[in-house]
Design a protein around this nucleic acid. Structure first.
Length: 659
DNA sequence: AGCTGGAGCC
């Protein structure tokens, strides 16, 4: 490509040849002019067309395109649809903003219009999400008696998909079939599948897929992703197994789908098969695999996947995608220090990087660190916070009990940063208000919400009712929860616990009956402890089957003795059954995290951190037990429950008894 | 003739 005004050439000139610059400049300029605007007599019409098209192909800036536009006019080739089409295409695919009327002006200047010219402008509108003008122009085109080409339809379908206009999309689809000539060929078919998928009508997408005479990797993968996003892993797996060939995008899509549907174990197995099939991998693949490890939450996997990233030359240093995923994983594996090390080492950071780290600090009970990082991020003008960033910041406020700061940020997020609060943000606010004991205000906020409250919102209110023992508001929250998530076993248990702790035993029985009626069983409490070699020990509540149970029991009894000397008193209201105090004590001692703790104390070396994961929220008694144990046993204990991390050290917890 | 579509980290 010839560089205008010789900029590049200028830099490459040596000092000794400076005296030639004026000559070289003018020489290059006139050469350039000659190349841009050849005399008409020297070239045939076709030659002029291809001359300008090749110039346009090389032009990626607005000034350059404007200049070419002028040249096209002066050369007298402006009635060529071919050249004008190309010009419109170039203008509308630029990254920089172009005044919307400019491509239209060129369109109007054309003396003749063919389908390609129309289509170029339709595509321009479609790229800018301007569905209204797409439709108008499509109408003009039909009135002009010009038949659309396949690409006209793909442009229309793409715009309909992006604007979620299923009605119009279906109409155009019907017209396409009626006009005839265009069956669902490869490209049109794939675009149609995407359109129906983004409008959420998977059945239609599947129909198009089934009707297509030829399908390629993209057809299969689009549909596969759609099924996995809708939670239908059965259909996704069926497609995956029947794909005639698979590239790394297809493998990655399937792995990520499993992760998104909380099936991390299967995702890792599939990754093994992917490695064996030698299709290669990239940062997207690793992001999915890392996410699977984050869900498993075991440091064994964290180490394993970090090594793979290092071996593939995709370390956090040179991939912001891998780095951000690793930060999330480390913090979900309880290693927030390691997460920060990764964050610190990264060369490039984007909004995901910051958000992951902010969320990490938030769930590890370091709200100050989260807020500071948020402020640091705001200083970087090129990174704007998004909805997830605010989930992290608000979670930090709520875990830190920072009510006023939380309110400020919540009111700022839309006004200052243009991020409208969604149901998750409201859930954070409800949590924040709830912790501060402002249950009425929380309830009023829910009633004023502009978006539909989901289970998380009512769940946060119900959780707050547990902490502040308010069975009346709990009933309101629970009634909504039972409607939204009728199978959510935790809600019934929480409500019955709230009744239990205020001694309303008839109501407890009523809830239990409701649960039985809906055939719901209490999820057994379960905890894991990861031993030194990476093997995982699993403990269920009341479990006596562990091979070293006698040792566990001995350690627990010794621990209780020392704690009671320290003033520990079992919190009997944590037991939701109406049984004798003696039985309550027995049940509390059988809680799975206590068993895991006892096992951790005698099976790991004395200086190491004891990491425990638990499937349910940690109960009040276990929480106070862990606090005490961290002091008398002189061990750091980290417990991940289904909400967050608790770091126990020297008798206190990072959550400040706020959870 | 020109023209197009699929995966990701919180």
């Amino acid at each position: 490509m010839v560089t205008l005004f010789c900029r590049r050439g200028f830099h490459s000139l040596r000092a000794s040849s400076l005296k030639y610059i004026p000559w070289q400049l003018s020489q290059n300029l006139s050469e350039e002019r000659g190349r841009l605007l050849p005399t008409c007599s020297s070239l045939s019409f076709q030659e002029l067309e291809s001359h300008f098209v090749s110039l346009l192909n090389d032009s990626t800036t607005l000034p350059r395109l404007r200049q070419l536009h002028g040249c096209i006019y002066r050369s007298g080739i402006h009635h060529s649809c071919f050249v004008l089409t190309k010009l419109i295409r170039c203008l509308t695919s630029l990254d920089v903003p172009v005044e919307p009327s400019y491509p239209k002006l060129i369109f109007l200047q054309a003396q003749r219009r063919n389908p390609f010219l129309y289509t170029a402008l339709i595509r321009g509108y479609s790229l800018r999400g301007n569905l209204g003008d797409c439709v108008r122009l499509y109408g003009d085109m039909r009135r002009d008696g010009i038949s659309p080409v396949t690409f006209t339809f793909t442009a229309m379908f793409k715009a309909c998909g992006e604007q979620l206009d299923l009605r119009l999309g279906t109409q155009v689809h019907c017209q396409m079939v009626l006009i005839g000539g265009f069956g669902p060929d490869l490209y049109v078919g794939n675009t149609l599948i995407s359109m129906y998928v983004s409008c959420g009508v998977l059945g239609c997408a599947r129909k198009v897929f089934d009707q297509m005479p030829d399908r390629d990797l993209i057809s299969w993968t689009t549909l596969l992703v759609a099924y996995s996003k809708s939670g239908d892993m059965g259909s996704a797996g069926y497609l995956f197994n029947r794909m005639p060939e698979k590239d790394k995008i297809a493998w990655t899509a399937m792995i990520t789908g499993l992760v998104q549907n909380s099936r991390p174990g299967e995702a890792l197995k599939l990754f093994d098969r992917m490695l064996a099939s030698h299709v290669g991998l990239d940062e997207y693949t690793l992001a999915g695999v890392i996410s699977a490890c984050a869900q498993l939450g075991a440091s064994k996997y964290a180490k394993w996947v970090s090594d793979i990233a290092e071996d593939s030359n995709l370390s956090p240093i040179n991939s912001v995608v891998v780095g951000s995923a690793l930060i999330d994983m480390y913090s979900k594996c309880g290693q927030v220090d390691e997460a920060y090390k990764t964050f610190h080492a990264m060369k490039e950071r984007n909004v995901y990087t910051y958000s992951s780290m902010i969320v990490g600090f938030a769930i590890h009970g370091q709200p100050r660190a989260a807020i500071n990082l948020f402020n640091e991020m705001l200083k970087n003008r090129s990174i704007r916070p998004n909805d997830v960033t605010f989930v992290g910041v608000l979670t930090a406020c709520s875990h830190g009990g920072m009510l006023d700061q939380g309110r400020d940020i919540f009111s700022m997020m839309e006004k200052v940063y243009g991020v409208p609060p969604n149901a998750d943000h409201y859930a954070c606010m409800i949590d924040l208000l709830g912790r501060a004991g402002k249950l009425r205000e929380a309830l009023e906020l829910i009633e004023k919400m502009p978006v539909e409250p989901h289970g998380g919102v009512w769940g946060a209110l119900l959780g707050a009712c547990k902490v502040h023992e308010d069975p009346d508001i709990a009933e309101i929250a629970a009634s909504h929860l039972f409607a939204i998530e009728p199978d959510g076993i935790g809600n019934y248990i929480l409500l019955s616990n709230i009744y239990a702790s205020s001694g309303r035993w008839e109501d407890v029985l009523r809830v239990r009956k409701l649960m039985r009626g809906r055939k719901l069983r209490k999820n057994p409490g379960c905890s894991w402890f990861e031993a030194k070699k990476g093997e995982i020990h699993e403990f269920f509540a009341g479990d006596t089957k562990h091979p070293q149970y006698n040792e566990i029991k001995r350690i627990l009894e010794k621990l209780v003795e020392r704690l009671e000397g320290d003033g520990y008193e079992p919190i009997l209201s944590s037991v939701a059954y109406d049984v004798s105090d003696e039985d309550k004590r027995r049940i509390l001692m059988g809680h799975s995290e206590k068993l895991a703790l006892a096992f951790g104390i005698f099976s790991s070396s004395s200086g190491s951190v004891i990491r425990i994961m638990k499937n349910l929220r940690i109960c009040e008694d276990c929480h106070s037990f862990m606090c005490g144990a961290s002091r008398v046993a002189e061990r750091d204990i980290v417990v991940r429950d289904n909400m967050r991390f608790h770091h126990f050290r020297d008798g206190v917890c990072s959550c400040g008894n706020f959870w």
